[in-house]
Design a protein around this nucleic acid. Structure first.
Length: 501
DNA sequence: ATGTCC
């Protein structure tokens, strides 16, 4: 872990309304901190130190610390790092393209009021989309079984027409993705194909081919599937934007959070190890002495390798999400015949993208941060969201709900980014030690929220996370985005295999 | 986050 050399009390902070700037040095531009006074109290010293380390690392031109920030691998989870010249694997994160997706169904809230209907839906979804470490696909749909060659095609092509067709994913959903596919360092798919062939020969990529067949599964930790009722805001703008997004007030929707599973993990951890060995062998100084902040200058073989690996992992996550949504829709159709549904959006919070920041083409690393392009942003031209801005999907907690937001003009000052959720306030061990199981379970019961878990995981309880409304207030008060709708949980699907640790 | 340590 990083050694603390800048105690919090010595870090100069400049308040700019509800956004606060920390000055890492006298010569670099400030870190912009998005957070109300109470949110700023949630940043511990290591989190702030990681932000300073990241801001002062080679080639970095901007850093934003979001209200949901907490300690991460090298950089805080909940930050945006911008560089025109360098790529940083740590500030993308270990779960490459961890993302959110939202499926709007035409089912009225009343249709799932009956607990037996919700129990049947939980069973139908769990039958198709497994949870837990090491768990692969157990699709009951013959046409959607992922063998090795289809897995390879998916990680090379992403949500291409052919991949969608083979997996029974409606092709129109590809237009509802932040990015429906990723290409290699030279902007070609061929780079990914040859990189994949090479990776498959590498010893440290253990069971790599099998990991590609885990498409259509949730995994564990904070990943989840959640059945929601949509509550669109009462104001005219919310109603109008909700219509553009395809959100339907008072109807059922399904929110998913997952990433690139063991496949992306293997790629990310392989890159950390490879780059750390090179830094060590070549005696290159580490940013702030932190080996978790290894980097590669763009144009180097190392950067090319990382960008290819990131793209492969990102393609896995993309197809994984779309397949999960297709399987969830199929589950609803099994329980409630005739159900139709469409993807609202699919958007990541762990990815580096090429964007233009302050007129400079840069790699924007979002580590636990969500892209937030407002209406009129050049990159949205030709998409369904050119005028409105795209949907921003933010998981909160089952008790307070989750949120759909839309960016405002002010998002420019946060490098077109907002938070990615509530953000952890208690470490997993701390949560397991201090939180009471029956309090957690009875709170969900009081809200009539069902779950596939006999005991809800303590380290995932609402109390293990920051106050979601305070986090959202930070974003709104800084002028970054506005809330369009709240999603109220009706049942949750999570990995319960480690709930009794 | 991840078959939870190379």
């Amino acid at each position: 872990m990083t050694t603390m050399s800048h105690p919090r009390s010595t870090v100069p902070m400049i308040a700019t309304g509800e956004a606060t700037a920390i000055l890492p040095t006298e010569t670099t531009s400030p870190i912009r901190v998005i957070g109300t006074a109470s949110i700023r109290e949630t940043f511990d010293e290591l989190c702030i130190q990681q932000a300073i380390n990241s801001r002062t690392a080679p080639g970095v031109t901007d850093l934003v610390l979001n209200p949901d920030a907490h300690c991460g691998y090298g950089a805080p989870v909940g930050c945006v790092m911008v560089s025109p010249s360098h790529i940083y694997p740590g500030p993308v994160g270990v779960d490459i393209k961890c993302s959110m997706s939202l499926l709007q169904l035409d089912v009225p809230a009343e249709a799932i009021e009956d607990r037996t209907v919700r129990r049947a839906l939980i069973a139908a979804i769990c039958k198709r989309t497994p949870t837990g470490a090491g768990k692969g696909q157990r699709s009951v749909s013959n046409g959607r079984r992922v063998n090795r060659s289809l897995g390879m095609k998916a990680v090379i092509e992403g949500a291409s027409e052919a991949v969608c067709e083979q997996l029974g994913i409606p092709i129109r959903w590809a237009d509802r993705c932040e990015d429906s596919f990723h290409v290699g360092h030279d902007d070609t798919q061929e780079a990914l194909a040859s990189r994949l062939d090479w990776l498959l020969t590498q010893r440290h990529m253990t069971n790599f081919a099998e990991k590609m067949t885990q498409l259509g599964s949730y995994g564990g930790g904070n990943h989840f599937g959640e059945c929601e009722v949509v509550e669109v805001g009462a104001d005219d703008r919310s109603k109008q934007v909700a219509e553009t997004f395809g959100l339907r007030d008072g109807k059922v929707a399904f929110l998913s959070h997952c990433g690139s599973r063991g496949f992306g993990h293997n790629l990310a951890s392989g890159q950390f190890k490879t780059l750390q060995e090179k830094f060590s062998r070549w005696s290159i100084p580490l940013p702030a002495g932190d080996r978790q902040l290894v980097y590669a200058p763009l144009g180097s073989d190392e950067a090319d390798g990382y960008l290819d690996d990131m793209a492969l992992g990102a393609n896995f996550a993309t197809v994984n999400h779309l397949l999960i949504n297709a399987l969830v829709l199929e589950a609803f159709q099994e329980v409630i015949p005739g159900t139709t549904g469409d993807l609202v959006y699919f958007i990541s919070h762990n990815i580096a993208r090429k964007e233009i920041i302050d007129n400079v083409p840069s790699w924007v690393h979002r580590k636990g941060a969500t892209r937030a392009f407002p209406g009129g942003h050049h990159a949205l031209a030709g998409t369904p969201f050119a005028e409105s801005g795209h949907p921003i999907l933010l998981p909160g907690n089952p008790r307070d709900g989750s949120a759909v937001m839309v960016a405002d003009e002010g998002a420019e000052k946060s490098c077109y980014s907002v938070n990615h959720g509530a953000g952890r306030i208690l470490g997993r061990k701390q949560a397991k030690r201090t939180l009471d199981q029956s309090t957690i379970d009875s709170e969900l019961e009081d809200h009539d929220i069902l779950s596939n878990c006999r005991f809800y995981p303590k380290d995932e309880a609402p109390a293990a996370y920051k106050d979601f409304n305070e986090v959202l207030s930070s974003v709104k008060q800084a002028g970054l985005a506005s809330e369009v709708a709240r999603l109220k949980a009706r049942f949750v699907i999570k990995d319960a295999s480690k709930a009794d640790d």
